[in-house]
Design a protein around this nucleic acid. Structure first.
Lengths: 231, 231
DNA sequence: AATCGTTTTAAACTTTCGTATGAAACGGAC
DNA sequence: GTCCGTTTCATACGAAAGTTTAAAACGATT
């Protein structure tokens, strides 16, 4: 894993060591996971000594946690802000599609964002499967707050939606978004010709349409449950 | 990681060593991932010597691959059979809900199945993020064949569905299923009281209803694209 | 210029990993 | 009983991991 050149954007030697380490660690953690990247690789990518990781952060795990802390607030605020922006828009109640599109954009924004290089969201997918963060931090800092906000917004737009159905719907939407990212990561790793590569924007447009119809079906269920397969 | 007692179902010492190793390796790989489990742990769990892994399988990676090979055929056949069973049922064309329910059941069956203990599907989620299998084996042995079968079935049931829309729909359905399993795994790891635990059957019922509506919306798109937000 | 706290460095330490080795134990065939 | 191929065993090896250490280098203050 010969990573000697700095793989971060503008971190040659002007920034302080701690930031260089954080940037390098983030890139390597995203690309190869927690166990897949060594402290030596991080130090080499940051252009500093191995001991710096322990000197500044007190260990590999602490550094990993700090990499996350940098993004928790930004990501949570971005997601919730995208919900609030839609919900507080003037001109009557927003459509379900508007809410979903706004949230989906905010969700995959770290993937498209050129500043972070779209690496961080891969780390999220990893962390969901292979936990290395302290217990419940992920839930408390990200999932619960964002899920709560989205749930309230959904219920407001779709009055027929029960609380449990709203949560199930969120599970569906987030599941599609995460899986899209996983599939993207997977396909870019394996150069398989037959497998069609989707444009991300196209997939999001699909998810919005698909989910809006799904949510409406779940909301209808409550009011009139007779006409289930009318088509 | 003190795993000394056998964590597999019925593998104390009656079964041959290779099977004991495969069983033990499967359990540990599922629980802790490829890098997270050592050959020593596997040998200890299987109740045999460390060298047995190299003697019988020629290395850790070969053993890992063999763990997968045991399941590839079974899982692929189960998925495709569940599709075929629905599609070849007498009494006219099956409903979209029937197809989705059948496929979803086959998909999560390894999770519910008491024989495997539902561990293997976790390994699938891991492997999608952290590749350790030889390039493209996962795609060729699982994803492509099953996706092709499901795509054809979907198009047959929903004539309005284009090929690309069918693939996008499958991405949505599989995404929901995988995410459900990830969430299940995640929540069982973290004993968080506020987070509601869903019954798996309940979630699947939701996914079927949700996805059926979503797919119909994507199929309608082709024929009449005027009435998008009629509700 | 000397001093003192901070940072950086090279090297070593301990542990753990996957694998290799060679001897011991086993089990039929003769 | 002896032989021989197969299996099991304890052990060792080199590599790589995270962490520690003590000295060197640095920088501001006096």
């Amino acid at each position: 894993m010969d990573v000697l050149s700095d793989n971060t954007i503008g971190s040659s030697s002007d920034k302080p060591v701690q930031e260089r380490l954080l940037d390098a660690a983030e890139g390597l953690f995203c690309e190869h996971g927690f166990e897949g990247t060594s402290v030596r690789d991080i130090a080499a990518a940051a252009g500093c000594n191995i001991a710096s990781v322990n000197y500044y952060f007190g260990g590999k795990e602490k550094l990993y946690l700090e990499v996350w802390r940098r993004h928790f607030n930004l990501m949570r605020q971005a997601r919730i802000a995208s919900i609030d922006r839609v919900m507080s828009k003037e001109g009557g109640e927003p459509s379900l599609e508007e809410l979903l599109a706004s949230y989906a954009d905010a969700f995959v924004e770290p993937l498209v964002d050129k500043h972070t290089g779209g690496r961080f969201i891969k780390l999220m997918a990893r962390e969901m499967v292979d936990r290395h963060l302290p217990q419940n931090i992920f839930l408390e800092e990200m999932i619960i707050p964002v899920m709560t906000a989205l749930q309230q917004a959904l219920i407001k737009i779709c009055p027929g939606l029960s609380e449990v159905n709203a949560r199930l719907a969120i599970l569906s939407v987030v599941g599609q978004l995460v899986h899209t990212i996983c599939a993207e990561t997977m396909l870019e790793q394996s150069n398989y010709p037959e497998m069609p590569k989707f444009e991300l924007a196209e997939v999001i447009r699909h998810i919005v349409k698909f989910s809006a119809a799904g949510i409406r079906a779940c909301a209808e269920q409550k009011e009139d449950r007779v006409q289930k397969t009318e088509g």
